[in-house]
């Protein structure tokens, strides 16, 4: 534990200095971390910070992968089952699953993300209590599931029944909000690559989530990040797992199509 936190402190300094190094990166130099003009937040990091994400022994997010692996095998709920009892080895069963999430859900006729599917399995298939959003367990399991797709390209479906939800997500993304009257697009489309004081603005991609953030000193979900980005423009955030954020998550995942799943990514 202590070792990991030391690593994260080093990363804090490294990421802060980011603005001065990335501008020099020409297009095409980002390798697998870009798909044409679409760039992962990774490409905006300093080499030092990238190194921390790259090295599983230094990456603090790997703690949650380990916790998730343990939970995956643990029996819980009245049905007396573990995740593994139904799904088998995660390395096989969950490989590639995260690349298609969030996705349209036939049961609820809404968009569900990995967190929602995990809780569906807990309540419906295990007869266990759902995990609270942003709890250690739900984060660990989400990190663990998404980690099984690490390196695979994001590929969510935004046609068919997903269309109206995708459109709502896009509308949310482009709507100005809060007392600062800014839309997501004002920062992450219009000004990606520019500095807002010490912050180098990225495209705001979600391919690395749940992400280990130095500011949080833990991993956090996409919805936590959305809430933070809402509050910083002095706008009222939506609730975790709200329909609004599910739709937004779908739209943002589509923006990052082709980017590799990086979970657990390391960010400032």
């Amino acid at each position: 534990m202590g070792k990991f936190h030391l690593g994260s402190l080093l990363a804090a300094g490294a990421i802060l200095a980011v603005g001065f190094s990335t501008q020099a990166n020409a297009e095409g130099k980002h390798g697998m971390y870009a798909n044409g003009e679409i760039r992962s937040g990774y490409t905006y990091l300093t080499p030092q910070s990238k190194a921390i994400q790259n090295d599983d022994f230094q990456n603090p997010g790997m703690i949650w992968v380990d916790d998730g692996a343990t939970l995956y095998e643990a029996v819980d709920g009245k049905a007396g089952k573990s995740c593994k009892a139904c799904h088998g080895k995660a390395e096989v069963a969950m490989k590639g699953v995260a690349t298609t999430y969030p996705k349209y859900d036939e049961d609820t006729k809404k968009i569900k993300n990995i967190e929602a599917q995990v809780n569906r399995c807990r309540t419906k298939h295990m007869q266990a209590k759902p995990w609270k959003y942003e709890s250690g367990q739900l984060l660990a399991m989400t990190v663990f599931i998404r980690h099984q797709s690490r390196g695979m390209p994001m590929n969510v479906s935004v046609d068919g029944p997903a269309v109206p939800f995708f459109q709502k997500g896009e509308k949310f993304y482009k709507q100005r909000r809060g007392a600062l009257d800014m839309a997501c697009s004002n920062c992450h489309i219009d000004n990606a690559g520019k500095n807002a004081r010490a912050n180098l603005l990225s495209q705001g991609q979600t391919n690395g989530f749940p992400t280990y953030r130095l500011k949080w000193q833990k991993v956090g979900s996409t919805h936590r990040r959305f809430r933070g980005c809402n509050k910083q423009v002095r706008a009222t955030p939506y609730k975790y797992a709200s329909d609004e954020y599910m739709n937004l998550e779908l739209y943002v995942a589509w923006r990052g199509r082709g980017l590799p799943v990086e979970t657990p990514a390391v960010r400032n």
Binding site: Q175, G178, A179, L180
Partner: peptide
């Protein structure tokens, strides 16, 4: 523009309660 209006307090969407009705 992305530049906020510093002396305006209406016409915004979903302003956080503690900033409602206030100018920056």
């Amino acid at each position: 523009t992305i530049m906020p209006a510093f002396y305006k307090n209406t016409g915004f969407h979903r302003v956080l309660k503690k900033f409602k009705g206030k100018t920056i």
